[in-house]
Amino acid sequence: MKTNIGLFWILAVFFVLADAAYTVWSLIDHGSVEWTGTLGIGLAGVLSAFIAFYVNLSYKAQGGELPEDRLDAAIDDGEPEQGFFSPWSWWPLALGSGAAVCFLALAVGIWLLFIGVAFTVVALVGWTYEYQRGNFGH
C-alpha cells in the first residue's frame, strides 16, 4: 500500500508541474490560457492527490501491513474476509437494459422513456436489495 500511495503522490506532483508548464507555455505562445488543457491536467492532479490521500488514510487506519504487503506472510494469513462479492446476479444486466431503453428513448421518442424508467427503477431496486431479502435477509 505504501507503494500505491507513493505512486499516486508522484502522479499528483507530475500533473501539477505539467499543468504549470502547459499554462505558461500557452501564455507565451498564444498570449492566453488554454482552458481545456489547464483544467484537464490540473484536475488530473487533483484526482491523483485525492486517491493518494484516501489510500493513505486507509493505510493508517489498518494498523499494520496487510499480509500481501509482507514478504514473510503465509498464504493463510490473507484468508480473512476480503469483502462481499456477489457470486452472480442477473440484476446488472436488467439495469443495463433499462438504461439502454432510456437512452434509446432520447433518440427515437420520449414516450419510450416511460417504459425505460419503469424498467430501470425495478432493476435498480432489485439489484440494491438482492442481498437484503429472501435467503439473504438479515
Binding site: M1, L39, G40, G42, L43, A44, V46, L47, F50, I51, Y54, V55, S58, Y59, A61, Q62, G63, G64, E65, L66, P67, R70, A73, A74, D77, P80, E81, Q82, G83, F84
Partner: peptide, 28 residues
Amino acid sequence: SAPVVNRPNTVAVGTIVWLGSEVMFFAG
C-alpha cells in the same frame, strides 16, 4: 503469525476511485 490488521473496505476505496473519475467528468 501476523498481526491483525483492519483490511480497508473495498466498497469505500472503490467509491473513492470512482469519485476520482467523476472529478475528470466535471473537469470536462
